[in-house]
Design a protein around this nucleic acid. Structure first.
Length: 842
RNA sequence: GCGCGCGUAGCUCAGCGGUAGAGCAUCGCUCUUACAAGGCGAGGGUCGCCGGUUCGAGCCCGGCCGCGCGCACCA
């Protein structure tokens, strides 16, 4: 191993691979299942898509989870970070289909079995990528126990859940209007649909009435008129009241349409008359069921018009049919008006295609009954969601929950365990039915159906495994807010339903990292930043620190400054350790052996840093936790304590204290910046094993020292005041100044050393520099420019007078004296007196 | 449309009832026994706008303006 003293910089690229190897070969990431879930600590990783690569969101969440895992591992908990990947039905199938297309073939040409086989091979090849990338981040997930949502045992769990929910009547098959994705040729769930603003043409179309006259309806989708089965008006609408119960005749088709009254219709929109197309519009579908209307389908699953649309339109795409319908209506003089209309239209998040609402035979899951316990769990605090605002979103969604369409017309996934025979018989079971002529339902389950079981299916459920007994329920689930409904809420429901317990006690919803310009990070926009590039450039510690430091309760822009701050911290700590280790008596046992007020001060500040770090981690405030480490290492340990001790002999006492502080600092910082701390640990004399497996001790109240903090606080104030004075007075920092110090008693020596004062010499009085707790008198005569000094003094007097005026004003305010808290008034009085003294001394 | 969040130093963000903060950037000084990916210091803000509550308000309340997100059925 390279000697520490030869290196003046921390080189992540050289150090990190070595350290990762040591961690992995130690097996520290893999706990034996033992103990209870209360004693142990576990986190189930949000399973990345098996085909995925590490992006900034993974890097942030990986940093958060690994920080929690390392923190609790170092505090005596048996920790398991449950690892694995998700088969990601649609995403994976699409990737492989694209590859097939490039080869000039298709999944249809291959057939189902060969295609699925092909996807498995694809997974063999690319599935390990993201796992390897997590290792580079320093993640100590359980790499020895990697799960996949299509593992044999996982499939068993999924099928069992399906069958049980079916038996309870919560899963059912229904002919219902679904969000059809024509690109995917599959149904998708409500949560996979996003609204986009689109400008369409709103046509006013006249429908003749059977008894003469007409009624004009407004629509942006004229082609769907071919499937109209009614016209609706508002029951209170005087313009149309007399038409309710009459019949209109559908142009181009000739179908007779009842005119119905329904509250849904908005009289002030369009013409106030609404064509009803139950087969192709969600609202019309509801209205249709209310009024028992026919459901006609004219658009097929391929996005083209069906035979039902009539010979003039069958086979054309929706867009083509629209033109033809409008042309035909125009010809008949039935288009009364056309205008641009901008509105929100559903698109598939998966394929980007416009959703085509279609009536389709699909599997659904009733959610109301399952939602109730999941609502209770959050209301009663059994599951705590951080930040609070996300808990409100969670509850709102669950309180308004709708049935979940769980079947997907894909090949890659958990095939639905239902068999049919002769259109008559249906069999539902985890094993295929006996007997001939059974056909299995070709559809697979929505990926989120299997993800919902993740925290317990990964631990071996439904078997009563040692892993399940030791680590379920898990402790924390950390995730982004976009899958709070898709995933988190459903895990709570399934966990409660099937294990009788919540799957985790805390949910931490982390920030979404945006591009530096505030746009979404995305490959297609070219705004993505690859965390691996950042690790390459700045080191994994820097990336971890930076991501934690920029995280917040809301979305944040990526801040490369924060990453550089992390890099600076790693380098700083590296050099501080190098310096300390080069000076201490190596054989000394690390221990707090304070011999000076500075020693007592740093020991006291260290306890404070530990307590604050603990509090911040407990509150999931990772930004404060990371920045607090930076402040302690930079602002207290390096800027002051190491400097205080320059020129002091490194005797046994100082060595013991130094080593103690160094070791405690490495232990404290390790969860956030594991690499540099682990590397340094290997150079600390007497430090055994890996830092990652050391046990941290909590803040030690006996080392808290208010007196030392006050005294050193005054020293720091004095030194800072003097440096500032030098800068303004133009006195070089290196120049030793004859001076007297008032108000610091025995600590004046410390100030003299830090600020280059000569307390023994004497000379003309030239300047008085007040600081919080005393006064430095410079006796340097000719060194100082008298004019500059006079200007400074005047400025200082002005400042003091201003502050005195403010304090006097406050104290002469009867309201303040009468109503403000007593101690505040007293403090103000003291301050006023102090300011007056300072002014007098000037 | 309803709901939530955010507008604080040039930039990214803390602070959320008692005299405005950090990191970076800028400027000046400085190679003082670790660290130039150093050290020290300085400048820089009517805390989006208007009212109100309070002895006292970035901080609480109300109303505007701007930005973002979530939910929603206006054809």
């Amino acid at each position: 191993m390279t000697s520490l003293q030869d290196r003046t910089r921390f080189e992540p690229a050289e150090v990190e691979p070595r350290i990762v190897d040591r961690w992995l070969s130690s097996g520290l990431h893999h706990p034996e299942p033992d103990g209870t879930p209360e004693e142990n600590y576990s986190i189930a990783i949000p399973p990345p898509n098996v085909t995925g690569a590490l992006h900034m969101g993974h890097a942030l969440n990986g940093s958060i989870q690994d920080t929690l895992i390392r923190y609790h591992r170092m505090r005596g908990r048996r920790t398991k970070w449950i690892l694995g990947t998700d088969h990601a039905g649609i995403a994976t199938q699409k990737q492989v289909e694209r590859a097939l297309e490039a080869e000039g073939t298709s999944r249809e040409a291959l057939g189902r079995d060969a295609f699925v086989e092909r996807v498995w091979r694809w997974r063999e090849e690319y599935g390990g990528t993201i796992i390897e990338q997590l290792k580079r981040l320093g993640a100590t997930a359980d790499f020895d126990d990697e799960r996949f949502t299509l593992d044999e045992s996982y499939v068993e769990a999924v099928l069992k859940v399906f069958v049980e929910l079916y038996d309870k009547g919560l899963i059912y098959r229904d002919l219902y209007l679904v969000n059809w994705d024509p690109g995917l040729r599959s149904a998708v769930s409500d949560l996979e649909v996003e609204e986009r603003e689109v400008t369409d043409t709103l046509y006013h179309i006249a429908y003749p009435l059977e008894d003469g006259g007409e009624i004009v309806v407004a629509t942006v989708r004229p082609e769907t008129m071919l499937a109209d089965t009614a016209v609706a008006v508002h029951p209170e609408d005087d313009r149309y009241r007399h038409l309710v119960g009459k019949t209109a005749v559908l142009p181009l088709v000739g179908r007779h349409l009842p005119i119905v009254a329904d509250e849904y219709v908005k009289p002030d929109f369009g013409t106030g008359a609404l064509k009803i197309t139950p087969g192709h519009d969600p609202n019309d579908f509801e209205i249709g069921r209310r009024h028992d209307l026919d459901e006609v389908t004219v658009i097929g699953e391929d996005g083209r018009m069906t035979a039902e649309a009539g010979t003039a339109f069958a086979g054309f795409t929706v867009a083509e049919a629209r033109e033809k319908v409008v042309a035909a209506l125009t010809e008949q003089g039935l288009i009364r008006h056309a205008e641009d209309h901008t509105h929100e239209v559903p698109f598939s998040q998966r394929s980007g295609e416009r959703i085509e609402p279609l009536i389709s035979l699909q599997w659904f899951m009733a959610m109301d009954q399952l939602a109730q316990p999941a609502i209770e769990a959050v209301r009663t605090g059994r599951v705590r969601i951080h930040p609070e605002s996300q808990a409100r979103r969670y509850l709102e969604w669950l309180e308004n929950i709708r049935p979940w369409c769980i079947s997907r017309q894909l090949w890659w996934g958990h095939q639905i365990p239902v068999w049919y025979r002769d259109e008559e018989e249906t069999y539902v079971g985890t094993q295929p039915p006996e007997g001939p002529n059974w056909e299995r339902d070709p559809d697979v389950l929505d990926t989120w159906f299997s993800s919902a079981l993740w925290p317990f299916a990964t631990l071996g459920w439904p078997e009563d495994t040692p892993e399940l007994r030791a680590f379920y329920p898990t402790d924390v689930l950390s995730t982004a807010r976009d899958i709070l409904f898709l995933w988190v809420a459903r895990m709570v429901m399934m966990g409660l339903e099937f294990t009788g317990d919540v799957p985790f006690s805390d949910v931490y919803v982390h920030s979404v990292i945006q591009a530096p310009d505030g746009r979404r990070m995305s490959k297609s926009l070219g705004t993505g930043i690859d965390p691996l590039d950042e690790i390459e450039a700045h080191g994994a510690d820097a990336v971890r620190f930076g991501l934690l430091a920029m995280s917040s309760s809301q979305d944040v822009r990526y801040s490369s400054e924060k990453v550089r701050q992390g890099q600076a911290l790693a380098n700083k700590l590296f050099n501080a350790a190098r310096y300390v280790l080069g000076n201490v008596v190596a054989s000394t046992e690390p221990a707090p052996r304070p011999a000076t007020v500075a020693d007592r001060w740093i020991l006291s500040r260290l306890q404070r840093a530990k307590a604050q770090f603990d509090a911040n981690v407990a509150a999931f405030d990772f930004s404060k936790a990371a920045l607090g480490l930076y402040d302690f290492v930079y602002g207290e340990l390096c800027d002051w304590y190491l400097e205080f001790n320059k020129g002091r002999a490194y005797d046994d006492d100082l060595s013991a204290t130094m080593l103690y502080v160094l070791r405690e600092t490495l232990v404290l910082a390790h969860p956030v910046i594991p690499f540099v701390t682990e590397e340094l640990w290997s150079h600390v004399p007497g430090a055994e094993d890996l830092l990652a497996t050391q046990q941290a001790s909590g803040p030690d109240a006996t080392l808290h020292d208010a007196e030392a903090e006050a005294r050193v606080g005054a020293v720091i104030a004095a030194v800072t005041a003097l440096r500032s004075w030098r800068d303004e007075a133009g006195v070089r920092p290196g120049e030793t100044l004859p001076a007297r110090v008032d108000g610091l008693d025995g600590d004046a020596e410390l100030v003299a050393r830090m600020a280059r004062l000569d307390l023994g010499a004497d000379g003309d009085h030239t300047a008085a520099i007040p600081f919080e707790g005393g006064m430095i008198e410079i006796r340097a005569g000719s060194l100082v420019d008298p004019e500059a000094e006079a200007r400074k003094r005047a400025a200082e007097r002005e400042r003091l007078e201003g502050e005195i005026a403010r304090a006097e004003g406050k104290l002469s305010n009867a309201g303040f004296v009468a109503k403000a808290p007593e101690e505040l008034v007293a403090a103000e009085r003291e301050k006023l007196e102090r300011l007056r003294r300072e002014l007098e001394q000037l």
